[in-house]
Design a protein around this nucleic acid. Structure first.
Lengths: 201, 201
DNA sequence: ATTATTCCGTACCGATCGGTACTTAAAGGC
DNA sequence: GCCTTTAAGTACCGATCGGTACGGAATAAT
């Protein structure tokens, strides 16, 4: 059994891995998987290639970890939205959250989950597939939440949760694309508001 | 003054440039600007690098031409939509057209104008900027059409054409993202239908 | 036939790609 | 003092990147 001492043998890491991952996330967010070279990434992270490989594995793994981090740190609005009491509030919070998150000052416009790797050649297939799964998980979570709303009578029994979920996710994805296109926060909030006019209740 | 004879001197081109451009368009559509290497492109086009450079200039130019071709051949629904008599029909035609075009059998899913180059490193900046301009032109055309609808009384005077235009384009962009994520044609048509529930008239 | 012009194919360019071997540095355990 | 273990830095790997020089092949004009 290893001792309870927190110190590990060997030379201690000379950089903050969490901070480095945050920098890498921004590079992927801004330039996409294909467009972010190891030179770009390590320069932004302030470490050498060898340190990156030792700490994170390889480029694919780094992207996977960046997405994981982004899920916790860049898209909290999603978890927030799912916890709202009514389906309408869920959709509202999700869409306005997407508008805010896609236009956060000091951060790249748009959404890593959309522009990180949308279309891709063979080398970026893993990243693309990871994002496809990520977006589809988002639809699933929304669908489950809306199904609950139907069960609870919060949504009319005629509502189809999966269609509502896909609609909300589609608008959120579109908001990310529009943010990259230069749309402002105010403009995208009006888009979110407009989208809510379609809400059944 | 050159003769009226249609024949040019020199060895005639040994391939169909239009067909080659169509193949290249699909590669960009499927893999994005960064993900489409010259090897991929020329292999799909069935010509050598030198023939490509002679006929189309370089990779940037080839992409520009592919986008031009795609605007005429892949997104006719947009021009169709703008010609519809009422604003509602414009939006309906545009959104359902996007759903159909993003899930055309035998073609890559999604939209070249979205996934061709969304996030990009330095080498794909030109392509990215061209697509940003392309998408924003789409918003402008819709805005002008909806402004006309307000002027004609087809839309209420309280409607804001630019917001409606951005909403429609946002949903269309989201549809493209969802198509890449694997959403089916039927699912995306339901998204388009759902989005139209937000329409003011 | 000769010449001018254009196209095609090979073979190559320097630069950059993601990834790694190898050495040196810094820590703990003894 | 060691020895082990892990991290950091350099220098490099083969492969691929976008782009091109060059020579042969095919056509029209003369």
């Amino acid at each position: 059994m290893d001792s309870g001492a927190g110190t590990k043998p060997g030379r201690p890491r000379g950089f903050d891995a969490e901070a480095a991952l945050e920098r890498a996330t921004r590079v992927f967010w801004e330039q996409g998987y294909d467009g972010a070279s190891l030179a770009d990434l390590t320069a932004a992270m302030g470490i050498t290639r060898t340190s990156m490989y030792a700490a994170f594995g390889n480029k694919d793994e780094l992207f996977r970890l960046a997405l994981e981090r982004y899920t916790q740190d860049g898209t909290e609005y999603a978890a927030d939205a799912l916890g709202r009491p009514t389906a309408r509030e869920v959709a509202e919070t999700f869409l306005h959250g997407a508008a805010l998150a896609s236009t956060r000052p000091g951060y790249p416009p748009g959404c890593l989950g959309v522009q990180g790797s949308l279309a891709a050649g063979p080398t970026a297939r893993n990243a693309r597939d990871a994002l496809i799964a990520w977006r589809n998980e988002g639809v699933t979570h929304l669908r489950d939440r809306f199904q609950r709303a139907v069960d609870e009578g919060d949504l009319p029994a005629t509502a189809t949760p999966v269609d509502l979920a896909r609609y909300v996710m589609t608008v959120a994805n579109g908001i990310a694309v529009q943010a990259v296109s230069g749309a402002s926060r105010a403009e995208l909030e009006r888009v979110a508001t407009a989208a809510m006019k379609a809400w059944p209740l």
